[in-house]
Design a protein around this nucleic acid. Structure first.
Length: 863
RNA sequence: GGGGGGAUAGCUCAGCUGGAUAGAGCGCCUGUCUUACAAACAGGAGGUCGGGGGUUCAAGUCCCUCUCUCCCCA
């Protein structure tokens, strides 16, 4: 028998047994449906600690629902993660000295599928190590056939309803990956740079000064804009003066626009519609021509307006060169240091350029009203509540979502153009052959749009896809809408909103009833974990070292409802200690050789522990209903450690020494029930302990949630609570005297104690009844004991302590008295509150008097 | 610049619709190898609830304001 729990010995065994037996239990069950869809991890690498938290949480709720008799369905899967995967793969190719253009599209996609398979296998291996129990046969991949059907169907339907449309607009362009990205895939970063003041000559022989941070784009200027209220420029506007772009002498108008900030720079700005979002809007208002001088590769093109020296230079080099040329020509007036926010691609880390291009868009605003209306009715309801507000805010400011991407890896857009003519309206169809047949076209004359859809387009359909849409009605088995979504706050907009959008579009329902939002697992100082900082915790290593349960416990026990969840080895160690505590307790119960596991009330401690257990089950249920996993975990921890082990098992020692055979069976009965309520959280050790104490093959995971233990006599339970309190106050008194509990071997029982109380008290403290009659008295809830042969020199400290306690009670008494003298309180407060205060005052006074009396008594005793 | 969260014990957080001596885990201090567990047990210290003002008989809790912090958006 080992004193240490070795978690690794059986982990694999339980994983395979759960996989084998638990789904059968699932489908057999005719209970209330409970469903979850997994936030599918990207097939870009291995899982991190944040995934561990997310999946553990889902497992907790799924296992809990299952034990409570629900028919559960938790769908696992993975996400093709278009841009992320392609970026990873391109980097990999680069390190092999190859590239995607060298490989060609077909071979590249083949590589991508191979990569996906590899990744998926690794990820699923890691899933399983955590001991999670999704419905494995239901696994989906966002690019599998089922999902592809769903994507095509959704696209075509939404296109028909004009929710999806094509447009030539400014989008965020990733020059490295050469694709459009959506607004939220762009991070803002403040970078040090310059703001240059340039002088543009005007056609009335004067000039106008403008300020810009991007002098390399002056060649794409369409106008100079000033505020209409700005007196400085009134004459320019009144006289219709035009300006000339320096270096190239292209003539552009000076226009008035309200959006120009008079206080910024020189009060005038150059308008470059093709390369700035704000300028694009100004351009639209004034119908300005759009001049594009940047290529898709982020380099200056050989547009006729661009000086030869700048052709083919990237933005940074072009800027340097342009400044030099402007300086030489005398157009540069001033250069100041300036911090400006620039867009950085989340995926490639390169600078994002606003770029005019033809893209597909989805008008999210169509669903805004309905989504907000449903949110008001609590659909979905968010935990913690405040995230509902954030979600609502996101909805209220939704815009068009650019859904096309110039990538290879993804769902290709189901739009077909007549060969060689992309300017015509496309045929949008799920099946081009059928479509052409019906219209008497030759399908060979059409080519599919090269672009693919944003990853989140297919992820948005995930809850529908997981339950068979569009072929099957997802509502059929009652699993849709799903019961609960568990995800990180960072993808509320990316994902949660978009799933709601699709479900509103096709089912007019939100796809989940409740949403549990959790924070990011960070290091113990609250910093984001990142490989470059070296502060990551690899879940696989953590599980190898501490066991999967310790990891699960550590994550759950510390899951604060904040944005940042601090996490470190300390948490894992405390998880490990708890597992060890459970293991040792189980071993001890075994050593008592229980004859069965029937719980029979025999001693008052039985009533007490049964009551504590019932309270714990109720607390776990209530906490999980409120999605407070941490509280549930704490209830379990507190019950087991501080009530079951510290008290019940301690008492079991003396009870069994005294020939009580029932206590072992009772301890085992409680332990077995405890295993069931703990199994959603720490499933491995529950199976291990069950095997240890029962030598039984049946799984804890397939049992039923315990019902209340019945037949508790509250008087007995409270009687034990008195003993509990008395032991505590005895220990405290001894400690105040500066003695140790161990050095006192016998006490005098003073007065008439009930026999059971006397036995329990003496046994718990390992004391004997003394033959003498005198001693130092200690008063407790159940009566008085006297400690014989005590050195009277230690007593003065005890007297001081009592006096101090009595004094400490005074301010409180004064306050209560004051409150009762306050007419406002007596007249306005509810009667029961007033009575409460009266009772409290009486108690406080009694307590104080008792302390004073005792102090006097001891003082007399010591003389 | 706009919006939101937060400020309670050394740390991380609870504290419901105002009403007890403000709680938990971890950490810290003291004592103990007591027959499951020293990865344990027993005991203990530690908070003017960010500052100021207001509403109320009564404020950690409601309102205003200031300071500091985190997040999101532009």
């Amino acid at each position: 028998m080992s004193n240490f729990y070795n978690p690794s010995q059986n982990e694999e065994r339980w994983v395979s047994q759960w996989e084998k037996d638990v789904p059968i239990h699932d489908s057999k069950s005719k209970g209330k449906p409970f469903s979850i869809v997994i936030p599918p991890p990207n097939v870009t690498g291995s899982l991190h600690i944040g995934h561990s938290l997310n999946y553990t949480l889902q497992d907790v709720f799924t296992r809990w629902a299952r034990l409570k008799g629900c028919s559960t369905r938790w769908i696992p899967g993975s996400d093709h993660a278009g841009i992320a995967t392609q970026a990873v793969l391109e980097k990999k190719l680069e390190s092999e000295g190859s590239s995607k253009s060298e490989l060609g599209k077909e071979a590249f996609l083949k590589r991508a599928w191979e990569w996906k398979d590899e990744c998926r296998d690794v990820i699923f291996q890691q899933f399983k190590k955590l001991g999670i129990t999704p419905y494995w046969p239901g696994e989906r991949f966002t690019m599998d056939e089922q999902c592809n059907k769903a994507v095509k169907k959704a696209f075509v339907e939404l296109y028909k309803k004009d929710v999806i449309f094509k447009g030539n607009r400014l989008v965020n362009w990733d020059c490295q990956l050469q694709t459009a990205v959506s607004d939220i895939e762009v991070d803002r970063e403040d970078r040090n740079g310059f703001i240059w003041t340039l002088e543009y000559k005007t056609n009335d022989g004067k000039s106008i000064k403008i300020a810009t941070t991007r002098p390399e784009t002056i060649f794409a200027d369409s106008a100079i804009a000033v505020n209409p209220n700005d007196e400085r420029f009134k004459s320019y506007l009144d006289n219709g003066v035009n300006a000339f772009i320096p270096l190239v002498d292209v003539e552009i108008p000076i226009i008035a626009d309200d959006s120009v900030d008079m206080d910024f720079g020189e009060g005038a700005l150059k308008v470059t519609p093709a390369h700035d979002h704000l300028d694009f809007e100004i351009g639209e208002r004034h119908d300005l021509p759009i001049v594009t001088i940047l290529g898709k590769d982020g380099k200056l093109s050989s547009h006729e307006r661009v000086p030869n020296e700048l052709h083919g230079l990237n933005v940074v080099a072009a800027r340097r060169k342009a400044v030099e040329m402007l300086e030489n020509s005398g157009s540069l007036v001033d250069a100041k240091k300036h911090k400006s926010a620039i867009g950085i691609s989340q995926r490639s880390g390169s600078v994002i350029e606003p770029m005019l291009s033809e893209q597909w868009f989805l008008n999210m605003k169509v669903f805004k009203g309905r989504a907000l209306e449903l949110l008001k009715d609590g659909s979905p309801s968010f935990y913690p509540e405040r995230w509902g507000g954030v979600y609502g805010d996101w909805w209220s400011k939704v815009e068009n979502w650019c859904i096309s991407r110039q990538l290879w890896w993804g769902h290709q857009i189901p739009a077909w153009y007549p060969k060689g003519d992309k300017s015509k309206d496309p045929i949008v169809s799920e099946n081009i052959e059928e479509e052409c047949l019906s219209k008497n076209h030759d399908s060979k004359q059409f080519v599919q749009d090269e672009d693919v859809l944003d990853t989140w387009f297919s992820s948005a359909l995930w809850p529908l896809e997981c339950f068979g849409w569009p072929e099957d009605d997802p509502k059929e088995n009652g699993f849709f809408p799903t019961s609960l979504l568990i995800t990180g706050y960072d993808i509320i907009f990316f994902w949660v909103l978009k799933m709601v959008l699709m479900s509103l579009a096709f089912e007019d329902k939100t796809p989940f009833k409740e949403v549990l939002i959790h924070g990011l697992v960070c290091d113990k100082k609250g910093r984001k974990m990142s490989k470059s900082k070296g502060n990551t915790i690899d879940p696989l290593e953590a599980m190898d070292e501490y066991g999967a349960d310790s990891l699960r416990f550590a994550l759950l026990f510390n899951m604060v409802p904040a944005e940042v969840i601090p996490f470190g080895n300390d948490q894992l160690v405390s998880g490990q200690r708890f597992m060890n505590k459970i293991w040792n307790a189980a071993n001890y119960i075994n050593s008592l050789e229980p004859k069965n596991s029937d719980f029979v009330f025999y001693d008052r401690s039985d009533h007490w522990i049964a009551q504590k257990f019932n309270e714990t089950v109720a607390s776990v249920d209530k906490s999980l209903e409120g999605k407070d996993v941490r509280k549930a975990m704490q209830s379990i921890h507190h019950f087991f450690w501080n009530e079951f082990c510290d008290w019940y098992l301690e008492i079991a020692k003396s009870r069994s020494n005294n020939g009580d055979l029932q206590v072992a069976s009772n301890a085992k009965a409680i332990m077995e029930k405890f295993l069931v309520i703990s199994s959603p959280f720490v499933p491995f050790i529950c199976e291990d302990v069950n095997l240890l104490i029962n030598n039984d093959e049946s799984l804890v995971a397939t049992r039923s949630w315990p019902t209340e233990l019945e037949g508790i006599d509250m008087k007995e339970s409270e009687g034990f609570q008195d003993i509990y309190d008395s032991v505590k106050s005895y220990r405290k008194s001894i400690s105040i005297l500066g003695l140790s509990v161990e050095e006192i071997k016998e006490v005098v029982i003073d007065g008439s104690w009930n026999q059971g109380q006397e036995d329990a008290f003496l046994n718990i403290l390992r004391l004997k009844k003394s033959g003498t009659e005198n001693g130092f008295p200690i008063e407790m809830a159940i009566g008085k004991v006297m400690i014989p042969n005590i050195d009277s020199s230690v007593l003065s400290e005890r007297v001081d302590e009592l006096k101090r306690n009595a004094e400490d009670a005074e301010p409180r008494i004064k306050r209560l008295e004051g409150q009762l003298q306050n007419k406002g309180f007596i007249n306005n407060a509810p009667k029961d509150k007033v009575q409460l205060i009266r009772d409290r005052l009486r108690e406080a006074q009694q307590e104080r008097d008792e302390l004073v009396k005792r102090a006097a008594w001891i003082q007399k005793f010591s003389e």
